[in-house]
Simulated scan of single mutants.
Amino acid sequence: MAIRAARLADAEGILEIVNHEILNGVSIFELAPRTLADQRTWLQDRAGVHAVIVATPDGDDHTVLGFASLSPFHTRPAYNTTVENSVYVHRDHRGQGIGRALLEELVGLAKSHGFHTVIARISGGNETSVAVHRSVGFELVGTERQVGRKFGRWLDVSVMQLMLAD
């Protein structure tokens, strides 16, 4: 497996992962599928320090096994040294260490870009994601109760945090 910076050509592979989660899962709080144009815009908006990375199979630079991103935590300037992370793995490739590898690479990028802390918001009691984040050093710092509603049920969000610098 290789991990590299996402390119515009990766939009379709990322879109497949995202839309499956939107339509079938609770890890994304969107209700309507994205279009390819939406996904391309999302990728273009995440350049520089707010990076997107993808995992691809060795020797196959076109198949997206998973992706991860850093996004601004908040729009107010005092939050500029804090980022929020997202990690998603294609449903056919889960349980192979791809999520952890992406998260480790993403944390390294956040450090090299000078961020102070990374926040993860994990929805719907996703214990696998909580465990992966814990394995990389994130700590549970709180729970936002019933902040989302999808598929006719209320969803909590676990908030995890990794301090990058003292």
Rank of each mutant, 00 (worst) to 15 (best):
I3D: 07
D10P: 08
D10E: 02
I14Y: 06
E16V: 10
V18R: 11
N19C: 14
E21R: 13
G25W: 15
V26Q: 14
S27P: 01
L31P: 11
A32N: 13
P33A: 05
R34W: 11
L36H: 08
A37R: 06
L43V: 15
Q44T: 08
H50W: 11
A51Q: 01
A51S: 12
V54Q: 03
V54I: 00
V54T: 08
D58K: 01
G59T: 09
G59H: 12
D61Y: 04
H62E: 13
G66T: 00
L70S: 03
S71H: 09
S71Y: 10
F73D: 02
H74C: 08
Y79N: 01
V83Q: 00
N85F: 04
N85C: 10
S86P: 04
S86L: 08
V89W: 12
V89T: 10
V89A: 09
R91L: 09
D92W: 10
Q96V: 06
A101Y: 02
L102G: 05
V107R: 11
L109D: 00
A110L: 04
S112V: 11
F115I: 02
F115W: 07
H116S: 07
T117F: 01
I119S: 02
S123P: 03
G124I: 11
E127Y: 13
E127L: 08
V132T: 15
V132Q: 02
S135H: 01
V136K: 07
G137L: 04
G137F: 11
G142K: 12
T143P: 00
R145V: 14
Q146D: 13
V147R: 14
V147S: 08
F151T: 15
F151L: 14
G152D: 07
W154F: 13
S158L: 14
V159I: 15
L162P: 02
M163A: 09
L164H: 03
